[in-house]
Amino acid sequence: MATVTTQQAGQSAGANPGPKRQPNTGRFGSSVFKKAVMAVTGIIFVLYLIAHMVGNLKAFAGAETFNSYSEFLRELGEPILPRLTVLTIIRIVLLVAVAAHIWAAFSLWKQAKRARPIAYQTKKRVQQSYASRTMRWGGVILILFIIWHILDLTLGAVNPAGRDSLPYGRLVEGFQNPVVTIWYAVALIALGMHIRHGVWSATQTLGHSNKRRERALNVFATAFAVVLIGGYLLIPFSVLFGIID
């Protein structure tokens, strides 16, 4: 059988002049370093989210407990440290982590765009999860949500209870509006998926996954995300259905 796959003259392998860039063997240039930044900052967020979720559940203990917990967070470290010191440190760590997470994400996003300059006409998914596929746009939604969330429940700027209200008042008045509750629910589910893939991906990126652990790790990531987001979702829906008022 005649084989007809010879290349045309002048288009030998030499047509490829090599990479456009010099390989960057520096410490911060490698894509794996950027992934490690994402993984470590992601772990910081997850730890914060666990504490935040547990704190939220105090809404079930009533207005007084909830408001005094909020005050406790501001007084944390007193009298050794001035008021707000510990909270400010936590906020700075989180802000730096957010900046680093976004920097690494955009840098890897840019690299991924360069890596596929021409899209496939047909591309099927073989095994990827919805969570893994939506990490980037999910992340964009999450940052917008976090900005809204701070304006809403921390500062009260966009909350019906106003700026001078107490945390419990903002919580109840805010989530009595079904539109707000649904917006929070959507964002929290997006957060859950981000965490589901993030937990697995961070373990893999930090080099602690292997064939034996892979399955258990994925089950854990899903279970963790479900429990965490479940805990978060309890509050807005309890307000909406009048369990918390």
């Binding site: 894509s31 992934k35 890897l108 690299q111 360069r114 890596a115 998914r125 990827q128 893994s132 990490m135």
Partner: peptide
Amino acid sequence: GGCTNIGE
């Protein structure tokens, strides 16, 4: 590109 552990 960089790996995001999708597994494809």
